[in-house]
Design a protein around this nucleic acid. Structure first.
Lengths: 147, 147
DNA sequence: CGTTATCAGTTGCGTTTGTAACTATTGAAT
DNA sequence: ATTCAATAGTTACAAACGCAACTGATAACG
């Protein structure tokens, strides 16, 4: 009657798969550098953007601003990034990696690309492309009526 | 050099999409019944299995046993489920939904199926099937060397 | 201008989480 | 039989989290 097949229910399956894969990868940056996931994300975003604000990073990676704030604080403490207040709007702080931060990231990025390569090999190029497309579609849909 | 395109990096994309979809759905059971995600999961598993142990539920939904333990406690407090110690192995506790629990679940399951239907409509049947298959493949792969 | 709203980012605080240690029970080994 | 390992589940504690309230700064509007 009220049957709901959990194994075919996307919210459930997505979270379980995402947890599995991301925990698997998290093992790399946690083990090797003691980074948390928010810290890894800030690092990766900053490596890609060269220069960004905390808000920007939060938007791109769907992280709460307090998470970003704390991750930035920790990376700054490690001297992996530095912040500079914007000249024309002193609310804004521009973040960028230090030489040290870039170097640390380079090592991690190599591991990430390797991980990526193995995923691609396991799934196949077509399925991977299709997956990325489907994920984008999923993100663009807002189904329940939460504001 | 050390470029890593985050938007094409699966661990990142999977988590972000899963967060979006599951938060979207979580809105339903949080708003309507004040359930947490672990609680919802225990409820759904139990509705499907009719009878299960906490360990079993933890395995099926990849939840830490303390999470399951606390969710079970809360659902028992609400009298949505009851536990009975196994006759031949008194370590094991069999869980099952009460009439109340089943009734509450029935309402939620209807909303879940509706949510599911809208997802299916948005993605298409083929893409949905492909997604589920790909997710299964992802879960079966263990890439990094974490034991 | 002066008031009010808005925005970037931080911090206080209660809640949720995972780790590790614990209880209780059963199975295995000598 | 006695000891040791393994298992189901709970609990204590510290870390991580999100919300709401805050500071400081700019923009918008009368």
């Amino acid at each position: 009657m009220s049957a709901l097949k959990l194994e075919e229910f996307l919210p459930f399956r997505l979270v379980r798969a995402a947890d599995a894969v991301s925990l698997d990868f998290a093992h790399i940056y946690k083990q090797k550098h003691g980074l948390s996931r928010p810290e890894w994300r800030v690092l990766a975003n900053l490596a890609e953007l060269r220069r960004a604000t905390a808000t920007e990073i939060g938007l791109r990676s769907a992280m709460h601003k307090t998470k970003v704030s704390r991750a930035v604080f920790e990376l700054e403490r490690r001297k992996w990034l530095n912040r500079r207040t914007d000249g024309s709007d002193r609310r804004v702080e521009w973040l960028e990696l230090t030489k040290l931060g870039e170097a640390q990231f380079a090592g991690l990025a190599a591991l990430a690309r390797d991980f990526e390569k193995r995923l691609l090999a396991a799934l196949g190029a077509g399925a991977t492309r299709a997956l990325l497309l489907t994920l984008r579609k999923l993100e663009s849909i807002r189904l329940s009526s939460n504001c």
